[in-house]
């Protein structure tokens, strides 16, 4: 560590596969915010996906192989941060469960899990961030993605930081805690049921009158954005980190118009 400056924890950014492939802006927004929270950010190359598609399909062997890769790539960091409640929940809650009873890996997975955080809760709960220097003009609404909310208790933190964004007004979404119907592979395995669920979600979103929808998980965001676009809605969709980092110049998720 550099001794002239105060201790800057080293954060390993777990980009998540969806952010890596579909929306790098969220990754850069996360880097910016974590740096603003007084940390150094590194991005290990040996990361792919958290393993949820395999884990939730009952394929434990592949999940374990992926989990071992991830643990090895990240365990040297002070913190591991992911811009997704779902992936952070996988790393933090499910990795230790996966290796339960494994003499070699259980302790490693547990140590690793202790350092894992979802981005916004990391900023607020771990780094004590109270405000952001960002501006976003207009009304937004916020959907609480399931894993972040129920596995990690992410609810107040994004709202606290959003309230400090200049020009932004938060209109609460009715049933914000109800699933959007994404559910990973669920949405393609049971598309009709998933569609029924997301239709109710977009109805609620429209009711708020907000021009922008925010959430903390790209999977859910792509699902809701995709539905809003299909319905011809004017509501734009973004990851909460983009707004908090003031990186909203590019087109929203699913494009403009």
């Amino acid at each position: 560590m550099n001794d002239q400056t105060p201790f800057r924890p080293r954060v390993g950014l777990f980009v998540t596969c969806l952010v890596d492939l579909f929306r790098p802006t969220i990754g850069f927004a996360a880097v910016k915010l974590i740096e603003e929270a007084g940390c150094t950010v590194e991005v290990p190359s040996a990361q792919t996906c958290c393993g949820q598609p395999a884990y939730n399909s009952g394929d434990r062997a592949d999940t374990k192989a992926i989990a071992k890769n991830t643990i090895q790539a990240f365990e040297e960091y002070d913190y591991i941060v992911a811009p997704s409640g779902s992936c952070a929940g996988m790393l933090k809650k499910h990795y230790p469960a996966l290796f339960k009873g494994d003499a070699k890996w259980e302790a490693r997975a547990t140590d690793f899990a202790g350092k894992v955080h979802e981005l916004v809760s990391f900023l607020v709960d771990v780094r004590g961030m109270q405000s952001v220097a960002a501006r976003f003009d207009g009304q937004v609404t916020y959907h609480d993605s399931c894993s972040g909310l129920r596995e990690l208790g992410v609810r107040a933190q994004p709202r606290a930081l959003l309230s400090t964004v200049e020009g932004l007004k938060l209109k609460e979404l009715k049933e914000a805690d109800v699933c959007c119907g994404f559910g990973g592979t669920f949405c393609v395995k049971y598309p009709d049921i998933s569609n029924g669920i997301v239709e109710k979600k977009t109805e609620r979103i429209e009711e708020t009158g907000a021009a922008t929808l925010l959430a903390g998980d790209l999977g859910c965001l792509m699902n809701m954005a995709g539905k809003l676009k299909r319905e011809g809605s004017a509501v734009e969709t973004r990851h909460v980190a983009e707004v908090l980092a003031g990186m909203t110049d590019g087109p929203p998720i699913g494009g403009r118009g």
Partner: peptide, 23 residues
């Protein structure tokens, strides 16, 4: 191959290059 998704909703396209490439 993404019919399960696009039957009911649009699929947001990737922004550009991957995060890893850009990083």
């Amino acid at each position: 191959l993404a019919g399960g998704w696009t039957r009911h909703r649009d699929l947001p396209a990737p922004e550009s290059r991957t995060f890893m490439q850009q990083w």
